[in-house]
Amino acid sequence: MGSPPLFYKWSSKILPWLSIVSILILGVGLYWGMFYAPTDYKQGDVYRILFIHVPSAILGQSIFMFMAICGFINMIWRAKISGMMLKSAAPIGASFTLLALVTGSIWGKPTWGTWWVWDARLTSTLILFFIYAALIGLHSTIEDKTKADRAVSILSIVGIAIIPVIKKSVDWWQTLHQPSTFTITSSPSMSPDMYQPLLICVIGFYLFFALLLTLNLRNEVLEREKNKNWVRQLFGGLS
């Protein structure tokens, strides 16, 4: 899978399946959450926004960790595909983080009484979004793609320190944002008929990310290898 032509061939096979499965699971999760999950005793139906908010926030952070791992591989083994993966994942991670911020804001207005407050959780998540923007910007300023990949690799490894801060912000400081509902040490403080659809949504979001990443990466591979023989042969050009 390490070489671009091999990835392209392999992903062509897996793409239809990935599309069907990810859209299906995402659809089931969201439909279940929006229409079948019970109403919250305190918030009413407004809480349903968490079926989008929570998975996007999880993805925003997971994708950053994924990028840091890609960065590590890219710097040590200099595998071409890891750099492309890094570049393809960045806009998706930024979008999920933005989606988490926007949905959180929409939820915040009716429940807290404000769109935005500068508490530790919200501010650190906004910083995460800015780091994503910096990664995307940095990559596009450097003409040489290999050098751009390396610069972004380093920045993503440096930036990874924000993730534990976001995660622990609600425990370290007094915030308006509520502490985590799901912890490793205790059972979730959410009833099962609410966290079951949420879990499906999270899995759906992960699969949807895999789908988006594959699509982005295929374009990136073609773009960078457009002068290579295998691409020319693939599109019927002269070799």
């Binding site: 968490l50 308006l176 403080s189």
Partner: peptide, 11 residues
């Protein structure tokens, strides 16, 4: 501002 806790359950 109202602070929400981490508990979610049906009525």
């Amino acid at each position: 501002l109202a602070k929400h806790d981490e508990n979610y359950m049906p009525p």
